[in-house]
Design a protein around this nucleic acid. Structure first.
Lengths: 116, 116
DNA sequence: TCTTTAATTAACCTAATTGTTAAATGAAAA
DNA sequence: TTTTCATTTAACAATTAGGTTAATTAAAGA
């Protein structure tokens, strides 16, 4: 399997709200240069730069140089790995949801967790 | 969608190797009492206890009392949430793998998603 | 060349995380 | 009821994470 994927490291990269938002944005808007990625946050450029470096080390993004900009892009492989990982849990979460299953089958009009 | 699922928090819970191993073990071996979960680690009981508390706060596990033991179990909802999240990236990672696709096809086989 | 723009690296500070040991809790067994 | 077992809480120390400002690099444009 994907023995080269260090899942705790990847999850650690996604564990910060800023980094998570960056990843989500790259999914929704496609590749973006560092400056534009930084713009929505009221955080210094060096802080963003370090977040991006961490995402890159975890293999979630890559940076390429384009003229005077560093453009960030999601790396497909890592997301494929994450998908494979969570798929292993399908047999568990997808069975006998009992009274929860109707709710979820409705395709998430809302969530159903009452634990918090 | 699952707006009340705090993904950075959930990822943070999975970002520690000990906690990740605990979650994997619960998937592979089913519900286990705290003492047995702690056994493979050369870490004090309080340390394990706090890891479990964090997993519980993130909604990844729950603890029930059974005789003199606290038995830990994975929570389906949270894994379903994670799956829904990564599914949103499928359109991205599943298309035009280009020269990578042969490499990855070797190991992952076909995916069988039924959630949409 | 000189200046500007884009981004990173360095040095530093504070807060959060993760581990420890000792004490506390609460149910079961004696 | 007293002891034992299973686990948690409290208090504390060491490390890591995440932010800041100042200095550096590197390419573009004047």
């Amino acid at each position: 399997m994907n023995t080269q994927t260090n899942f705790p490291e990847v999850f650690g990269a996604l564990a910060d709200p800023t980094r998570f938002a960056i990843v989500e944005r790259l999914l929704n808007e496609g590749d973006l240069p560092v400056g534009q990625l930084a713009e929505p946050f009221k955080m210094s450029a060096p802080a963003i730069s370090r977040h991006l470096k961490l995402l890159e080390s975890a293999g979630l993004i890559e940076r390429r140089i384009e003229k005077q900009w560093r453009v960030c892009a999601l790396k497909k492989e890592r997301f494929a790995d994450l998908h494979q990982w969570i798929e292993r849990y399908r047999a568990f979460w997808n069975t006998s949801f009992d009274r929860l299953e109707t709710l979820l089958d409705n395709q998430q009009g809302e969530d159903n967790d009452s634990s918090r």
